[in-house]
């Protein structure tokens, strides 16, 4: 029905937000959601434009032997030409919805900071054109550390079965769409096993165990955050290892350091492992668009801001000239 799996994500995340506002008595402020969306999209656009200019300049410099690196005035108009700059607004919207769902702030400026850092991180923290921090996650961690008025409410999703089913069903759909269900399974499986062992050892009744797992926030994280295929390891084996490490760290931080936001810290701390795992186990990069095998070489480029193909460049140059 919808071409891009991200459209499903946007749809479902929006649905959760609407449900949240409508029924769950959160400290959700619609104006903060708008601010988050605006900031993320704007940052995405600016960063994508900058990247476009740098790439075009470099290419011009290479082609013409021109080392002055002056920006062609005509190129400035390209900033508004989204088909050239290709800002990935879908990804930006997903990030902003994720922030709105999970992060709570007192002031708009904090949400702006979170959104700006989230999106910029995609352009800054990357190796071989692949960003390794989950944007929403780094946005959350950044404002938790840098500001005084941000917090995460892990208990606010409650534990209703109904929500569990809704999350699992829709989340599963999305995950299946993007072909990374294995990460969710590995994370939830490992975490559930660790909690089960602890529960058994402590001698709590099993309803305590279920209560600990029936957290909507945990599921939201497992289904929508650690499955982001653009920032997680490429090979299946490395994804398993990666997800299990996050589960283990979450378990330790939650049970021995009593940090309520353990999952976010665990993901933040272990995100760079992606690079290590990718260098050990190689596999094709993930692309949001369905592509033919002959196009796989382009998958190594960041599709969020994919540079133009060579013939297109040639055409433009002749028009300019």
């Amino acid at each position: 029905m919808l071409k891009d799996a991200r459209d499903y994500q946007i749809l479902f995340l929006s649905l959760f937000l609407v449900l949240g506002i409508g029924t769950r008595d959160w400290t959700l402020h619609p104006e903060f959601i708008l601010v988050a969306i605006a900031t993320c999209c704007l940052t995405q656009w600016v960063a994508a434009s900058l990247k476009y200019f740098i790439e075009v300049d470099n290419k011009d410099a290479r082609d013409n032997g021109n080392t002055e690196g002056l920006i062609d005035t005509k190129n400035l108009a390209d900033v508004f030409n989204f088909s050239l700059v290709k800002p990935a607004f879908r990804s930006a919207i997903i990030t902003s919805l994720g922030l709105s769902l999970l992060l709570r702030v007192d002031h708009c400026s904090t949400m702006v900071l979170a959104g700006a850092i989230a999106i910029s991180s995609k352009f800054i923290f990357k190796i071989k054109d692949k960003h390794f921090f989950n944007p929403a996650n780094i946005g959350i961690i950044a404002v938790l550390v840098l500001t005084q008025d941000a917090w995460v409410s892990p208990g606010q999703w409650g534990e209703d079965w109904w929500y569990l089913l809704l999350f699992a069903g829709t989340g599963g759909l999305i995950v299946k769409k993007v072909g990374r269900w294995d990460t969710t399974a590995a994370f939830l499986g490992a975490y559930a096993l660790l909690e089960a062992i602890r529960n058994f050892w402590l001698g709590w009744t099993w309803d305590v165990y279920w209560h600990r797992l029936m957290s909507g926030s945990l599921l939201l994280f497992a289904l929508f955050m650690i499955t982001d295929p653009r920032s997680i390891p490429n090979a299946r084996i490395s994804r398993y290892l990666w997800a299990i490490s996050i589960a283990l760290l979450t378990f330790i931080l939650r049970n021995y350091f009593f940090i309520p936001t353990a999952v976010f810290w665990a993901l933040f701390a272990l995100a760079p492992l992606t690079i290590v795992f990718d260098s050990i186990w190689q596999a094709p990069r993930f692309s949001w668009q369905e592509t033919s095998p002959s196009f796989t070489e382009n998958l190594t480029l960041d599709l969020a801001i994919a540079p133009k193909s060579a013939p297109q460049m040639e055409r433009e140059k002749s028009q300019v000239g």
């Binding site: 400290t27 007192d106 008025d149 917090w151 409410s153 309803d207 009593f258 309520p260």
Partner: peptide, 17 residues
């Protein structure tokens, strides 16, 4: 007993509302 199986855990947030 049945609806609150686990001890209460708290956090103080930055929410000044």
């Amino acid at each position: 007993r049945d609806k609150f199986p686990e001890d209460l855990m708290f956090q103080a947030t930055a929410n000044r509302e």
